[in-house]
């Protein structure tokens, strides 16, 4: 199930990142792109639930670590959206993906040369603001006065750590300015389409089998359309 995959490094070489895969060499092969930052943790278990269901329905699926994320040894603070996009495209090629299924901020990385589904795509500026706000709230509890604006100003020039995530200045700039628009080859699945409470809003990590069933049903319907 777990393997390593040859991930491109910034210097043009090849490194190694982890990948979770259900691979039986079947016809339909879906690359999953997990959400970034704190939502990555909130969704990990649900992603595996989705992959199990795809497997039971005769579909191979792959969940690659992006550099700096999950088990990666690369520094999170050295990553950028542009780099993750390049890596995601290489991962899709590596697993010979027939489709891509991206979740929340993972949608920003969906390779344009592929088609598939984007589940509740997030807005970059909103995600950044929420991370900065979490830090100001924690700072206030600790008796320090920080503002979202001053944190983002610092982030723009020299990078910043927000709630445990190191964000380089390039990534902060990308998150502030990127206007995410889903590529035409992707279908957008909104939370209302599958029902239930959005797992990324949960204060505590959770899993929802009924939502996993509904998501996989939508994917199966899309495949047979």
């Amino acid at each position: 199930m777990y393997s390593s995959w040859p991930c491109p490094t910034p210097d043009g070489g090849t490194g190694e990142e982890m990948m979770l895969g259900f691979d039986q060499g079947r016809t339909t092969r879906i690359l999953l792109l997990a959400p970034l930052f704190d939502e990555a943790n909130k969704f990990r278990r649900q992603l595996v639930e989705i992959m199990r269901r795809l497997d039971q329905n005769g579909i191979d699926s792959f969940l690659p670590d992006m550099p700096g994320c999950n088990e990666s040894l690369a520094r999170h603070g050295e990553q950028s959206l542009a780099r993750w996009q390049e890596v995601a495209a290489r991962a899709a090629d590596h697993v010979r993906a027939t489709h891509v299924f991206a979740i929340r901020s993972g949608s920003w990385l969906a390779p344009e040369a592929h088609a598939g589904w984007l589940y509740a795509p997030a807005r970059p500026a909103k995600i950044l603001r929420s991370l900065a706000r979490a830090r100001t709230l924690a700072a206030r509890e600790a008796g320090r006065d920080e503002t979202v604006d001053s944190l983002l100003e610092q982030g723009r020039t020299k990078g910043i750590e927000l709630t445990g995530w190191e964000l380089g200045s390039r990534l902060v700039g990308e998150l502030e300015t990127a206007q995410f628009e889903p590529a035409a080859a992707y279908s957008v699945i909104e939370q209302a389409d599958i029902g239930g409470k959005p797992l990324w809003l949960r204060a505590e990590n959770d899993v929802d089998p009924a939502q996993a069933d509904a998501l996989v049903a939508l994917i199966l319907a899309g495949l047979s359309a």
Partner: peptide, 10 residues
Amino acid sequence: DSMAVAGLLT
């Protein structure tokens, strides 16, 4: 916690 409150406000 602060992360959840940030999500709530957003």
